[in-house]
Each structure stands twice: as structure tokens, then as C-alpha cells.
């Protein structure tokens, strides 16, 4: 009967990010969106809430511009939304974000499960889930590609580098899901229209009773990574010669 919380981040659309000539990043033209992987987390929460016969709640920590995300999140199925509206969000590191989210989860009653994506599509830092579990002192399962819930137990398949590991934990728990966990369906028009009628709770960071919200890390600079390509084209001889030369060069570089 408990609530299932889906955490999501409102991020700039990577397709709109421009790189300036000095390699600085220009976000001024970027549209914002729910981080792609978080859409899977929201769908997973909606499905889990159905199994638990509880409510799915979307939760985000963002500045004023994250207001635009609330209806979008709700159109994907959650019953209600919670928005921690704070200017601190844009500079927040994993510590601050997890502290805020954990406080918000504590404020909600009867939470059975918190679902995050494995990482956000802007930073992909993979910090929030383990930190959130530590803050709440709940079991943590990461890299989840399949979920089943039976009573008060969650069984999850973890997709690791060389194996699938199946683990179980008692609820409440915090998990992070991979995109493979579901298809994150597009919202129906009925769901889009219904989203504006669903309840939204807006809280400020001061409503959460947290004393220390100072980031433990500071961003010194943020620049685009430039891959230098050698642009070597093998044109001599026939295809067989060219492949041989390519393979020889790759071996020389230590790649093969």
C-alpha cells in the first residue's frame, strides 16, 4: 500500500547543446527535458505502484525552470508530483541532491520504494542512488534491468559487466534502473490532459529542515571534450591491402 517514488532530473536536451570555439558549452538555445533514463525510472515506479496497490509519486529537485517538468512527469503515469524548488539545484553535487531528496522522502509517509535512473543524461555521475540509500539507511540495488515485487520483498536482476546477478531486499529500498528495465512508453493524449489535474506538492529547501546544504565539490570549469582524429585514409592497393594496412596500424597503436 506504500508509495513508490520516482526521482528525475530536468536537464538540457543534449541535441541542442552548442560547443563554442573555445570549447565552452552554450546551453542558451537548449530546450529542457526529463533526463531520458529517468523516463524509465518513472515507468518502473508506475508499474511497481500498481503491484503494491499504492501511489506513484514523481520527485524532482530543480530550480524555477523545473516547473515545466511537472506536467510532463505526471503525463507518464504518476499519481502525484513533488517539486523541491530551490536555486541550489543548479550547483548541487551528489551530496546536496541526495540529502535534499532523502529529506523529501522522509517527509512523505509510507514510502516503500524509491526508484532512480542509473545516471542522469547530462552528468551521468551515478551518485544519487547509493547516497540516497545511505541517507535513508535503506538497502540499495543498482544497475537493475528487471524488477519483481512479492509482498514486502523486491527481487531485482542486476545487469553487470559479465553476468546477471539476482538479488532480493526487503522494502523499503532504493534502486536504480537501467533503460532495459522497460520501454518507457510515450504518454497518451488522455494522460497528457489528465496531468494538469493531478496534485503537485511544492517545497522549498528550507521546508526540509536541513542544516548543511553546501556542495562538497565545486565545478572549476566545464568544457567540451574534443576527440582528435588522425583522419588517415588508406587508399593504396586493393581492399585487401587496405585492410591489412589498417590492421597493421591498429596493432602499432596498441588497439588490437
Amino acid at each position: 500500500m506504500g508509495k513508490v517514488i520516482a526521482c528525475y532530473k530536468w536537464v538540457p536536451d543534449e541535441a541542442d547543446i552548442k560547443i563554442n570555439s573555445d570549447h565552452t558549452i552554450d546551453l542558451s538555445k537548449a530546450k529542457w527535458k526529463i533526463s531520458d533514463y529517468d523516463k524509465n525510472a518513472i515507468e518502473a515506479a508506475v508499474q511497481a505502484a500498481q503491484v503494491l496497490e499504492g501511489k506513484a509519486v514523481s520527485l524532482t529537485f530543480g530550480g524555477a525552470n523545473a516547473k515545466s517538468s511537472l506536467k510532463d512527469a505526471l503525463s507518464r503515469g504518476p499519481d502525484e508530483a513533488c517539486w523541491i524548488n530551490s536555486d541550489l539545484a543548479s550547483e548541487a553535487d551528489g551530496f546536496v541532491t541526495a540529502t535534499v531528496l532523502a529529506a523529501a522522502v522522509r517527509k512523505m509517509e509510507d514510502v516503500s520504494l524509491v526508484i532512480c535512473a542509473e545516471g542522469a543524461s547530462d552528468t551521468y555521475a551515478r551518485q544519487i542512488t547509493p547516497r540516497l540509500g545511505a541517507e535513508l539507511d535503506w538497502p540499495v540495488i543498482t544497475s537493475v534491468s528487471n524488477i519483481s515485487i512479492n509482498g514486502n520483498t523486491i527481487r531485482a536482476e542486476r545487469q553487470l559487466d559479465d553476468c546477471i546477478q539476482t538479488v532480493e531486499a526487503e522494502l523499503p529500498a532504493v534502486i536504480s534502473v537501467l533503460p532495459e528495465v522497460n520501454d518507457a512508453p510515450l504518454p497518451s493524449l488522455k494522460a497528457v490532459i489528465a496531468a494538469s489535474k493531478k496534485p503537485v506538492t511544492e517545497l522549498g529547501d528550507k521546508d526540509l529542515g536541513i542544516t548543511d546544504l553546501t556542495s562538497k565539490t565545486r565545478v572549476q570549469s566545464q568544457k567540451a571534450y574534443v576527440m582528435i582524429r588522425k583522419n588517415i585514409i588508406f587508399t593504396e592497393g586493393d581492399a585487401l591491402d587496405q585492410v591489412k594496412e589498417l590492421v597493421g596500424n591498429l596493432k602499432k597503436e596498441g588497439i588490437l
Binding site: 515545466s68 506536467k71 510532463d72 494538469s196
Partner: peptide
């Protein structure tokens, strides 16, 4: 409205 914009995005992706 926001709903129209969300629908445009969802329908375009569909």
C-alpha cells in the same frame, strides 16, 4: 498550452 507542447513532442516521437 504546456499540454499541447507535450502532446506535440509525444506525437512527433510516435
Amino acid at each position: 498550452t504546456d499540454e499541447h507542447k507535450m502532446f506535440r513532442e509525444a506525437f512527433g516521437k510516435f
